[in-house]
Amino acid sequence: MGRYLFQRLIATIVVLLGISLIVFFVIRITGNPVEAMLAGTTPTKQAIAALTHAMGLDKPLPVQYWVFLTNMLHGNFGNSLYSGEPVFNLIRVRLVATAMLAVAGLLIGVVISVPLGVTAALHKGSATDVGVRALSLLGISFPSFWLGIMLVLIFAVKIHALPVAGYSSWKSIILPAVTLGVGQAGIMTGLVRSNLIDVMNEQYIQTARAKGLRATAVVYVHGLRNAMLPVITYLGLSLGALLGGVVIIEQVFAWPGIGQLMINAIDQRDYPVVQGGAVILALFIVLSNLAVELCYTLIDPRIKISS
Protein backbone atom coordinates (compact mmCIF):
# COMPACT_ATOMS: atom_id res chain seq x y z
CA MET A 1 0.00 0.00 0.00
CA GLY A 2 2.83 2.37 0.93
CA ARG A 3 4.55 1.73 -2.35
CA TYR A 4 1.29 2.21 -4.22
CA LEU A 5 0.73 5.55 -2.53
CA PHE A 6 4.26 6.61 -3.38
CA GLN A 7 3.71 5.69 -7.02
CA ARG A 8 0.44 7.62 -7.06
CA LEU A 9 2.15 10.61 -5.53
CA ILE A 10 4.78 10.57 -8.27
CA ALA A 11 2.03 10.18 -10.88
CA THR A 12 0.18 13.15 -9.35
CA ILE A 13 3.26 15.33 -9.59
CA VAL A 14 3.74 14.29 -13.22
CA VAL A 15 0.09 15.07 -13.98
CA LEU A 16 0.34 18.49 -12.36
CA LEU A 17 3.57 19.30 -14.15
CA GLY A 18 2.03 18.20 -17.45
CA ILE A 19 -1.06 20.31 -16.88
CA SER A 20 0.94 23.36 -15.85
CA LEU A 21 3.09 22.98 -18.96
CA ILE A 22 0.15 22.59 -21.35
CA VAL A 23 -1.89 25.41 -19.81
CA PHE A 24 1.11 27.71 -19.62
CA PHE A 25 1.98 27.40 -23.30
CA VAL A 26 -1.51 27.02 -24.77
CA ILE A 27 -2.86 30.18 -23.10
CA ARG A 28 0.11 32.08 -24.48
CA ILE A 29 -0.67 31.05 -28.03
CA THR A 30 -3.95 32.94 -27.81
CA GLY A 31 -2.49 36.41 -27.45
CA ASN A 32 -0.90 38.95 -25.19
CA PRO A 33 -3.22 39.93 -22.31
CA VAL A 34 -1.73 43.42 -22.27
CA GLU A 35 -3.26 44.08 -25.67
CA ALA A 36 -6.64 43.08 -24.33
CA MET A 37 -6.15 45.19 -21.21
CA LEU A 38 -5.39 48.32 -23.19
CA ALA A 39 -8.05 47.73 -25.84
CA GLY A 40 -10.52 49.95 -24.00
CA THR A 41 -8.28 53.00 -24.05
CA THR A 42 -5.56 53.67 -26.58
CA PRO A 43 -3.67 50.53 -27.48
CA THR A 44 -0.69 52.12 -29.15
CA LYS A 45 2.27 49.88 -29.90
CA GLN A 46 4.41 51.89 -27.49
CA ALA A 47 1.95 51.50 -24.61
CA ILE A 48 1.63 47.76 -25.25
CA ALA A 49 5.39 47.30 -25.29
CA ALA A 50 5.85 49.28 -22.06
CA LEU A 51 3.19 47.41 -20.10
CA THR A 52 4.28 44.03 -21.47
CA HIS A 53 7.77 44.79 -20.23
CA ALA A 54 6.59 46.03 -16.82
CA MET A 55 4.64 42.80 -16.33
CA GLY A 56 7.61 40.65 -17.30
CA LEU A 57 5.69 39.14 -20.20
CA ASP A 58 8.46 39.93 -22.67
CA LYS A 59 10.89 37.50 -21.05
CA PRO A 60 11.63 34.26 -22.91
CA LEU A 61 8.88 31.69 -22.36
CA PRO A 62 11.11 29.08 -20.65
CA VAL A 63 12.19 31.79 -18.19
CA GLN A 64 8.56 32.75 -17.51
CA TYR A 65 7.67 29.08 -17.04
CA TRP A 66 10.53 28.55 -14.64
CA VAL A 67 9.45 31.57 -12.58
CA PHE A 68 5.88 30.27 -12.52
CA LEU A 69 7.02 26.79 -11.51
CA THR A 70 9.37 27.84 -8.74
CA ASN A 71 6.86 30.33 -7.34
CA MET A 72 4.20 27.62 -7.43
CA LEU A 73 6.39 25.29 -5.40
CA HIS A 74 6.46 28.02 -2.76
CA GLY A 75 2.69 28.20 -2.84
CA ASN A 76 2.73 31.45 -4.82
CA PHE A 77 0.52 31.26 -7.90
CA GLY A 78 1.15 34.88 -8.85
CA ASN A 79 -1.28 37.79 -9.05
CA SER A 80 -4.15 38.38 -11.42
CA LEU A 81 -3.01 40.65 -14.24
CA TYR A 82 -6.33 42.48 -14.12
CA SER A 83 -6.85 42.97 -10.42
CA GLY A 84 -3.46 42.41 -8.83
CA GLU A 85 -5.19 40.02 -6.42
CA PRO A 86 -3.14 36.94 -5.45
CA VAL A 87 -4.43 34.05 -7.55
CA PHE A 88 -4.58 31.75 -4.55
CA ASN A 89 -6.96 34.14 -2.74
CA LEU A 90 -9.19 34.47 -5.77
CA ILE A 91 -9.34 30.73 -6.26
CA ARG A 92 -9.84 29.91 -2.60
CA VAL A 93 -12.94 32.12 -2.34
CA ARG A 94 -14.41 30.73 -5.55
CA LEU A 95 -13.49 27.14 -4.80
CA VAL A 96 -15.35 27.31 -1.48
CA ALA A 97 -18.45 28.63 -3.27
CA THR A 98 -18.34 25.90 -5.90
CA ALA A 99 -17.58 23.18 -3.35
CA MET A 100 -20.60 24.26 -1.32
CA LEU A 101 -22.79 24.11 -4.37
CA ALA A 102 -21.39 20.75 -5.48
CA VAL A 103 -21.78 19.17 -2.05
CA ALA A 104 -25.26 20.58 -1.53
CA GLY A 105 -26.29 19.39 -5.00
CA LEU A 106 -24.90 15.90 -4.41
CA LEU A 107 -26.60 15.78 -1.02
CA ILE A 108 -29.94 16.63 -2.58
CA GLY A 109 -29.19 13.99 -5.19
CA VAL A 110 -28.63 11.38 -2.46
CA VAL A 111 -31.74 12.38 -0.52
CA ILE A 112 -33.91 12.05 -3.61
CA SER A 113 -32.27 9.06 -5.24
CA VAL A 114 -31.91 6.62 -2.36
CA PRO A 115 -35.61 6.25 -1.45
CA LEU A 116 -36.62 6.31 -5.12
CA GLY A 117 -33.96 3.77 -6.12
CA VAL A 118 -34.83 1.44 -3.24
CA THR A 119 -38.55 1.62 -3.98
CA ALA A 120 -37.97 0.89 -7.65
CA ALA A 121 -35.61 -2.01 -6.93
CA LEU A 122 -37.98 -3.65 -4.47
CA HIS A 123 -40.83 -3.37 -6.95
CA LYS A 124 -38.86 -4.32 -9.99
CA GLY A 125 -41.02 -4.49 -13.09
CA SER A 126 -44.04 -2.90 -11.41
CA ALA A 127 -45.73 0.34 -12.38
CA THR A 128 -43.86 2.05 -9.52
CA ASP A 129 -40.55 0.90 -11.00
CA VAL A 130 -41.48 2.21 -14.43
CA GLY A 131 -42.58 5.50 -12.87
CA VAL A 132 -39.32 5.91 -10.95
CA ARG A 133 -37.25 5.07 -14.01
CA ALA A 134 -39.20 7.63 -16.02
CA LEU A 135 -38.60 10.24 -13.31
CA SER A 136 -34.93 9.35 -13.25
CA LEU A 137 -34.70 9.77 -17.02
CA LEU A 138 -36.52 13.09 -16.73
CA GLY A 139 -34.01 14.29 -14.11
CA ILE A 140 -31.08 13.39 -16.35
CA SER A 141 -32.71 14.94 -19.40
CA PHE A 142 -33.56 18.41 -18.02
CA PRO A 143 -30.95 20.85 -19.31
CA SER A 144 -29.69 22.56 -16.16
CA PHE A 145 -30.02 26.10 -17.56
CA TRP A 146 -33.67 25.46 -18.43
CA LEU A 147 -34.49 23.89 -15.09
CA GLY A 148 -32.65 26.70 -13.31
CA ILE A 149 -34.58 29.42 -15.11
CA MET A 150 -37.90 27.61 -14.50
CA LEU A 151 -37.15 27.31 -10.79
CA VAL A 152 -36.30 31.02 -10.66
CA LEU A 153 -39.54 31.93 -12.40
CA ILE A 154 -41.59 29.82 -10.00
CA PHE A 155 -39.87 30.31 -6.64
CA ALA A 156 -38.34 33.77 -7.03
CA VAL A 157 -40.47 35.69 -9.51
CA LYS A 158 -43.93 34.22 -8.79
CA ILE A 159 -43.83 33.02 -5.20
CA HIS A 160 -41.10 35.40 -3.98
CA ALA A 161 -39.86 32.73 -1.60
CA LEU A 162 -36.24 32.66 -2.68
CA PRO A 163 -33.68 35.06 -4.20
CA VAL A 164 -33.41 35.23 -7.97
CA ALA A 165 -29.65 34.77 -7.91
CA GLY A 166 -26.57 35.73 -6.00
CA TYR A 167 -24.67 34.62 -2.96
CA SER A 168 -26.18 36.74 -0.29
CA SER A 169 -27.84 34.44 2.24
CA TRP A 170 -28.39 30.78 3.01
CA LYS A 171 -31.49 30.92 0.85
CA SER A 172 -29.32 31.69 -2.18
CA ILE A 173 -27.94 28.18 -2.40
CA ILE A 174 -31.32 26.41 -2.51
CA LEU A 175 -32.25 26.92 -6.16
CA PRO A 176 -28.81 26.26 -7.67
CA ALA A 177 -28.36 23.21 -5.43
CA VAL A 178 -31.77 21.82 -6.39
CA THR A 179 -31.00 22.44 -10.08
CA LEU A 180 -27.78 20.49 -9.71
CA GLY A 181 -29.32 17.89 -7.41
CA VAL A 182 -32.17 16.98 -9.76
CA GLY A 183 -29.74 15.97 -12.48
CA GLN A 184 -27.56 14.08 -10.02
CA ALA A 185 -30.61 12.35 -8.53
CA GLY A 186 -31.56 11.16 -11.99
CA ILE A 187 -28.21 9.45 -12.41
CA MET A 188 -27.98 8.12 -8.85
CA THR A 189 -31.52 6.71 -8.76
CA GLY A 190 -30.61 4.40 -11.62
CA LEU A 191 -27.37 3.45 -9.86
CA VAL A 192 -29.09 2.66 -6.55
CA ARG A 193 -31.86 0.72 -8.28
CA SER A 194 -29.68 -1.49 -10.46
CA ASN A 195 -27.13 -2.17 -7.73
CA LEU A 196 -29.75 -3.00 -5.16
CA ILE A 197 -31.41 -5.42 -7.59
CA ASP A 198 -28.05 -7.13 -8.05
CA VAL A 199 -27.28 -7.20 -4.34
CA MET A 200 -30.70 -8.54 -3.42
CA ASN A 201 -29.94 -11.65 -5.46
CA GLU A 202 -26.73 -12.35 -3.51
CA GLN A 203 -26.54 -15.40 -1.29
CA TYR A 204 -25.89 -13.40 1.87
CA ILE A 205 -29.26 -11.68 1.41
CA GLN A 206 -30.95 -15.06 1.23
CA THR A 207 -29.02 -16.07 4.35
CA ALA A 208 -30.21 -12.96 6.12
CA ARG A 209 -33.76 -13.73 5.14
CA ALA A 210 -33.35 -17.36 6.20
CA LYS A 211 -32.17 -16.15 9.61
CA GLY A 212 -35.60 -14.58 9.94
CA LEU A 213 -34.50 -10.91 9.85
CA ARG A 214 -37.19 -8.34 9.22
CA ALA A 215 -37.57 -7.36 5.56
CA THR A 216 -36.58 -3.73 6.24
CA ALA A 217 -33.43 -4.88 8.05
CA VAL A 218 -32.53 -7.12 5.14
CA VAL A 219 -32.97 -4.28 2.66
CA TYR A 220 -31.42 -1.40 4.58
CA VAL A 221 -28.74 -3.13 6.68
CA HIS A 222 -27.57 -5.85 4.32
CA GLY A 223 -28.79 -4.77 0.89
CA LEU A 224 -28.51 -1.00 0.69
CA ARG A 225 -25.13 -0.77 2.40
CA ASN A 226 -23.62 -2.97 -0.25
CA ALA A 227 -25.55 -1.37 -3.07
CA MET A 228 -24.22 2.05 -2.02
CA LEU A 229 -20.62 1.20 -2.88
CA PRO A 230 -20.82 2.26 -6.54
CA VAL A 231 -22.93 5.26 -5.52
CA ILE A 232 -20.20 6.40 -3.13
CA THR A 233 -17.64 5.93 -5.87
CA TYR A 234 -19.81 8.04 -8.13
CA LEU A 235 -20.16 10.72 -5.44
CA GLY A 236 -16.43 10.92 -4.89
CA LEU A 237 -15.61 11.20 -8.55
CA SER A 238 -18.43 13.68 -9.16
CA LEU A 239 -17.25 16.00 -6.44
CA GLY A 240 -13.96 16.48 -8.25
CA ALA A 241 -15.58 16.80 -11.66
CA LEU A 242 -18.26 19.20 -10.44
CA LEU A 243 -15.69 21.69 -9.18
CA GLY A 244 -15.06 22.69 -12.74
CA GLY A 245 -18.30 21.45 -14.19
CA VAL A 246 -21.16 23.48 -12.75
CA VAL A 247 -20.38 26.64 -14.66
CA ILE A 248 -23.77 26.77 -16.38
CA ILE A 249 -25.55 26.69 -13.05
CA GLU A 250 -23.10 29.26 -11.69
CA GLN A 251 -23.94 31.56 -14.58
CA VAL A 252 -27.71 31.19 -14.32
CA PHE A 253 -27.64 31.94 -10.59
CA ALA A 254 -24.71 34.40 -10.55
CA TRP A 255 -23.07 31.98 -8.13
CA PRO A 256 -19.49 33.19 -7.70
CA GLY A 257 -17.88 29.84 -8.34
CA ILE A 258 -14.58 28.83 -9.80
CA GLY A 259 -16.09 27.98 -13.19
CA GLN A 260 -17.14 31.60 -13.73
CA LEU A 261 -13.77 32.83 -12.53
CA MET A 262 -11.92 30.55 -14.93
CA ILE A 263 -14.09 31.43 -17.91
CA ASN A 264 -13.61 35.15 -17.29
CA ALA A 265 -9.89 34.62 -16.82
CA ILE A 266 -9.64 32.68 -20.08
CA ASP A 267 -11.67 35.37 -21.87
CA GLN A 268 -9.35 38.05 -20.55
CA ARG A 269 -6.16 36.04 -21.02
CA ASP A 270 -5.41 36.48 -17.33
CA TYR A 271 -2.49 34.03 -17.47
CA PRO A 272 -1.77 33.62 -13.76
CA VAL A 273 -5.42 32.94 -12.88
CA VAL A 274 -5.80 30.41 -15.70
CA GLN A 275 -2.55 28.65 -14.83
CA GLY A 276 -3.07 28.62 -11.08
CA GLY A 277 -6.74 27.67 -11.40
CA ALA A 278 -6.00 24.78 -13.75
CA VAL A 279 -3.29 23.38 -11.48
CA ILE A 280 -5.38 23.69 -8.32
CA LEU A 281 -8.46 22.16 -9.97
CA ALA A 282 -6.36 19.33 -11.38
CA LEU A 283 -4.92 18.70 -7.93
CA PHE A 284 -8.42 18.44 -6.47
CA ILE A 285 -9.59 16.06 -9.17
CA VAL A 286 -6.51 13.84 -8.86
CA LEU A 287 -6.83 13.77 -5.09
CA SER A 288 -10.55 13.01 -5.14
CA ASN A 289 -9.93 10.15 -7.57
CA LEU A 290 -7.20 8.83 -5.34
CA ALA A 291 -9.45 9.08 -2.28
CA VAL A 292 -12.17 7.15 -4.07
CA GLU A 293 -9.73 4.42 -5.09
CA LEU A 294 -8.48 4.09 -1.55
CA CYS A 295 -12.01 4.06 -0.14
CA TYR A 296 -13.03 1.45 -2.62
CA THR A 297 -10.28 -0.94 -1.68
CA LEU A 298 -10.96 -0.42 1.99
CA ILE A 299 -14.70 -0.88 1.56
CA ASP A 300 -14.47 -4.07 -0.46
CA PRO A 301 -11.63 -6.30 0.70
CA ARG A 302 -11.99 -8.37 -2.46
CA ILE A 303 -10.36 -5.50 -4.33
CA LYS A 304 -6.65 -5.43 -3.66
CA ILE A 305 -4.19 -2.75 -4.56
CA SER A 306 -1.08 -4.22 -6.02
CA SER A 307 1.84 -2.18 -7.12
Binding site: V96, L107, S169, G236
Partner: peptide, 30 residues
Protein backbone atom coordinates in the same frame (compact mmCIF):
# COMPACT_ATOMS: atom_id res chain seq x y z
CA UNK B 1 -19.10 12.26 2.42
CA UNK B 2 -22.22 13.43 4.22
CA UNK B 3 -20.07 14.95 6.96
CA UNK B 4 -18.13 16.91 4.38
CA UNK B 5 -21.39 18.05 2.91
CA UNK B 6 -22.63 19.19 6.27
CA UNK B 7 -19.41 20.94 7.08
CA UNK B 8 -19.40 22.79 3.80
CA UNK B 9 -23.10 23.52 4.11
CA UNK B 10 -22.33 25.06 7.46
CA UNK B 11 -19.61 27.12 5.85
CA UNK B 12 -22.17 28.46 3.41
CA UNK B 13 -24.20 30.12 6.07
CA UNK B 14 -21.23 31.34 8.05
CA UNK B 15 -19.26 32.79 5.22
CA UNK B 16 -22.15 34.75 3.80
CA UNK B 17 -23.89 35.70 6.99
CA UNK B 18 -22.35 39.15 6.97
CA UNK B 19 -24.38 40.25 4.02
CA UNK B 20 -27.51 38.24 4.67
CA UNK B 21 -29.07 41.06 6.63
CA UNK B 22 -28.73 43.52 3.79
CA UNK B 23 -29.70 41.70 0.65
CA UNK B 24 -31.53 38.76 2.08
CA UNK B 25 -34.26 41.04 3.29
CA UNK B 26 -34.58 43.10 0.15
CA UNK B 27 -34.46 40.07 -2.09
CA UNK B 28 -37.87 38.85 -1.04
CA UNK B 29 -41.36 39.90 -2.09
CA UNK B 30 -42.28 43.29 -3.53
Amino acid sequence: VLGLATACGGAATTSTSTSASSSGTAASAP
